[in-house]
Design a protein around this nucleic acid. Structure first.
Lengths: 338, 338
DNA sequence: TATCGGAATGTTACCGCGATCAGTCGCGCC
DNA sequence: GGCGCGACTGATCGCGGTAACATTCCGATA
């Protein structure tokens, strides 16, 4: 209750309870044998003083830092909070704790964030994507701790990886669209230089179309702003430019939802006149007037699997480190189910 | 490049560059005078080895931990990532770094998270809400570091606070609704026992209605699930139960959007037959067919102001610590502008 | 009664770094 | 030529804990 300035230490508790610092340490960590009476004495004293252990010192002394660095591009994407929640859920049962760093999709910022994180000597790293700067890769290698790259499995991991193949996701969606008989297909998405997963989906998508002699008739890219509004605007732009479009593939559900709302408003027959599909399977879609066709990215599961790998490796348990999950397509109401 | 297991220390760099550890430390922190030649030698050696400083040790030695604990209820609410981005933006220009903890709206979890955070001896705490357990308040007091409670200013802060008055937000919205001539008003929101801010808005809302002799004719609460879908369902339920409702006040924009979509679909005249309003001013709304009336919660600004207070206090600059921001109402297209 | 063993507690030596203080060295000035 | 000074570099100590080892104490056992 009484507090000056200087924060409490084990010594304070030890003096207050009349035992050695070591014993206090043992009590507070539930380690080693301590008699019930001294345990009580110590706990009472600690509580009375309001003592909070100093993990900085503890970590230095024990050479153990139970933190897992989680490095993701953004928090406003919804996708990542879901991954995070998968991670937290699994780590909750261990003594590990996630610490989040955000890169804003910028490789240099990723490098900086990674450096910061590693300087706290975490027990493991979970990082989004397979594309990193040379320096980042070097740091991860040199760190000597378990590294799980998540979201994407189209590439060579540094250590472990958990995700889906976005190329394949693009291919599968393309195949379904063709099967349903659509021919004039447009693609709307984010500006892709740094969004590798969107790029890979696009590549897979066009690859399959090409095999059938189909080419994307129009495309449009955005960055920033309200995704829902952007989806609306871009859809409008595309329809104006290419009125004969009969399918629009969106690189994420949010812009897809915007497009869907726009088309419904215009009284366009979906999926008769124009079919639509997005990507991610976000919860939001459930409230839309019509279910957007989409493909689930297994976000939560990616989080749990990644956390499980870290947890296992930290305990020196070997564990399969290359997990490719299979996203499932959901036709919803905007893609004719062939 | 070569790495065994044991992580590098200042000593490794010092040996590699032929100077003392102290000098290496100075170089890496840009502190004190070091000749250009030794500086280069050291930097080269450090880079070659891939040395990453150990902040654990650094923090212990210097008694300075440049972390700011940010404790929020949820990451999936969109509101909080926005606050976070305000915080990050300001802290980016300082040497402070935010670290996020999530409480899931549970007081006990908040207590636990807070304890964890404080055990890292952060330089400051930014925590959502004014309601905390006794133990949490005690810890915050005892910590002796700057504490900023954010989001809400209806109550007594432990130290500093930045936010809006949710009571007043509720009152103002009620006043506008009455002014516009609506009479049969319903309220839809989250189950409130733990969402104090939603509760306060509701209290302010009913208070003003009561003064005009109006009572909420119907209400409905939800928890979990897709907010958009819930908004839809609840709106349907209310209309069925109380067909004469002429206004619905939603405790957040997401369910409001769900309701709006539902009503438009049913061909109901909004805002003629039924008016709608939400709360938060989320970006999402911009993509809707019609702009939902809402009230901006100043989320980003709350983040920046809170971070500024922490930054100032950390540098022993006194700074006004009780900031009440004024949310602005936006009528959109769903509330007759009287 | 002397010996032994385990439970309970204490002592010592760091962990990796930074604050502090103590040099060393070359140079200009009186 | 001696002195002082500033620029640079190094040695020592301790931050607050924990690991590992040492010690004490007590009852059980031979």
């Amino acid at each position: 209750m009484t507090q000056k300035n200087r924060s409490l230490t084990l010594r304070d508790v030890s003096e207050a309870s009349g035992v050695s610092e070591m014993t206090v340490s043992r009590v507070l960590r539930n380690r080693g044998d301590v008699s019930a009476t001294t345990r009580d004495k110590v706990l009472t004293a600690a509580k009375e003083l309001g003592y909070v252990p100093n993990k900085i010192a503890g970590a230095l002394a024990s050479q153990r830092v139970n933190l897992v660095a989680v490095i993701i591009p953004s928090l406003s994407n919804m996708v990542f909070p879901e991954v995070l929640s998968g991670i937290s859920q699994v780590l909750e049962d261990t003594e590990l704790q996630p610490v989040v760093g955000v890169t804003d999709y910028l490789p240099e910022k990723e490098e900086k964030v990674l450096y910061e994180m590693l300087s706290w000597r975490p027990s493991g790293v979970i990082i989004a994507g397979l594309e990193h700067t040379e320096a980042s890769r070097a740091m991860l290698h040199a760190s000597g701790i378990p590294v799980v790259e998540i979201m994407d499995t189209d590439g060579e991991p540094i250590d472990a990886m958990v995700g889906i193949s976005h190329r394949r996701a693009g291919r599968e969606m393309a195949a379904e669209i063709l099967k349903a008989g659509y021919k004039k297909i447009a693609f709307l998405g984010t500006k892709m230089p740094l969004d590798h997963r969107a790029r890979k989906r696009f590549e897979g998508f066009t690859e399959v179309l090409a095999k059938s002699g189909v080419e994307v008739v129009d495309r449009e890219f955005y960055s920033g702003g309200s995704a829902l509004a952007k989806g609306r605007e871009m859809t409008e732009a595309v329809l104006e430019r290419s009125p004969d479009v009969d399918f629009i593939y969106y690189s994420n559900d949010m812009i897809g939802a915007g497009g869907l709302l726009y088309l419904l408003e215009k009284g366009i027959d979906v999926p008769g006149q124009i079919g639509l599909a997005g990507f991610n399977g976000v919860e939001l879609l459930q409230g839309l007037p019509r279910q957007l066709a989409t493909m689930d990215a297994c976000r939560r599961e990616i989080g749990t699997k990644a956390a499980e790998i870290i947890a296992a490796r930290v305990n020196d348990v070997e564990k399969d480190g290359q997990i490719t999950l299979a996203p499932t397509i959901s036709f919803g109401d905007t893609l004719r189910d062939a």
